[in-house]
Computed example of a mutant assay.
Amino acid sequence: MRQAERRSGRARGRAERRGATAARALAGAALLGSALALAAAAPPDPAPLAPAPLAPQGKWVVNYGERGCAMARAFGAADAPVIVAWRSLPFSDRVELSVQRRLGQRGLRRGVLTIAVEGRGDQTVYEAFNGTGDKLRTLRGWTNPALFADLPERAVLTLTPSSEPALAVSLVGTARALAALARCNDDIARGWGIAPGERAAVATEAQSRGSPTRFIGPEDYAKAAVARGELGTSAQVWTIATDGRVSECRTVIPSGSEALDKAGCDAARLRARFTPAVGRDGLPMTSHTTQVIRWELPGAWQDDPAYRAYVRQRREAARAEG
């Protein structure tokens, strides 16, 4: 009898323990269910807030240069200003946009820059670098000048680099400065003996025969520049003759290496081929184009994943075009 009672007691104990375990499991499930319900009901994490736009310190300053024109303006605090600059070139469908600010040394980096202004946007690659021993960091990229056409007085420009801090600035008074920049470029063109209204006389623009990236390649990298570790980005104005060849080359934004700038012009004259522009009279005509050339040494730049993906897509598109 006592053995039966002991067996019965042990059975009741096991049942009670199983019941307690089941109760804890049910309680845990209820708590988990409540947590899931709360998680489902909670709003998603908010998107990162855009930076507050920095106010300008003064007016835009338009600089007339022998090679080209630029305009710049300081924004933000007087003791740590952010300098934003535009540099446009005659006969170019791109404008160089650059930012200089105190960020410390971060090395040579390349990424993808997202540009937004008044509902318009663009994505382009950027380069970010410091001067020698300089804590001022420069970021620059090339974008479509149409983004800045007909700007309202209180427009805001937001720049979001893939590997650098985002930035927003107020563009108050920018439309007048852009008009002055356009007049400056017309004056530069006249100084080169080129009519500023040349494009108005063109019925069909000159078209490159193949991708322009094939006109200048690694074999054109000057050996002296390689030995000195020279690299950089330049812009050149090419004169396209009626036979489709580059008859004249003018470096308007130097790379920082005379050897590389000369190599770019030499390669353009040797290898670049175009279908010439056609005037409104139906005849071939001399025209001009601006090309941006990036001289790179392996391993010099830190390329983020966004940059590598962007470049890969562009190369695939160029191959598809033939």
Rank of each mutant, 00 (worst) to 15 (best):
R2Q: 11
Q3G: 00
R6G: 02
R6D: 07
R6S: 04
R10K: 14
R18H: 13
G19S: 15
A20R: 15
L26P: 03
G28N: 04
A29W: 10
A29F: 10
L31I: 13
L32D: 04
L36S: 12
L38T: 14
A41H: 09
A52I: 02
A55M: 09
P56I: 02
K59E: 08
G65L: 05
E66D: 13
G68R: 05
C69F: 04
C69K: 05
A72P: 00
A74N: 13
V84H: 00
V84M: 02
W86C: 00
R87I: 00
L89V: 06
F91S: 06
V95C: 08
E96I: 08
E96P: 02
Q100E: 15
G104F: 05
G104K: 01
Q105M: 05
R106V: 02
L108S: 02
R110Q: 14
G111T: 10
I115P: 06
V117I: 14
G119N: 11
R120W: 12
D122K: 11
V125R: 11
E127F: 14
D134Q: 06
K135G: 01
R137N: 13
A146S: 12
A146R: 08
L147I: 07
L147G: 12
E153W: 01
R154K: 02
A155K: 00
L157Y: 08
P161I: 13
S162M: 13
L167T: 07
L167I: 10
A168H: 03
A168E: 07
V169S: 09
S170T: 05
V172Q: 07
G173W: 03
A175I: 06
L181Y: 02
L181R: 05
A182S: 12
C184V: 13
C184I: 09
N185Q: 08
D187I: 04
D187A: 13
G193K: 08
R199N: 09
A201Y: 02
V202F: 00
Q207S: 03
S211C: 05
T213S: 08
F215V: 03
A222V: 04
A222D: 14
V226M: 03
G229H: 10
A235N: 04
A235M: 10
T239L: 11
T239G: 04
R245S: 15
R245A: 15
V246K: 10
R250D: 08
R250K: 11
I253Y: 01
I253F: 06
P254E: 09
G256K: 06
S257K: 03
L260Y: 06
D261S: 00
G264D: 02
C265G: 12
P276E: 13
A277G: 11
V278C: 07
R280Q: 12
P284M: 14
W295C: 06
E296V: 11
L297T: 14
P298H: 05
W301V: 12
Y307H: 15
Y307A: 13
A309R: 15
R312F: 00
Q313P: 01
R314Q: 13
R315N: 06
E321P: 01
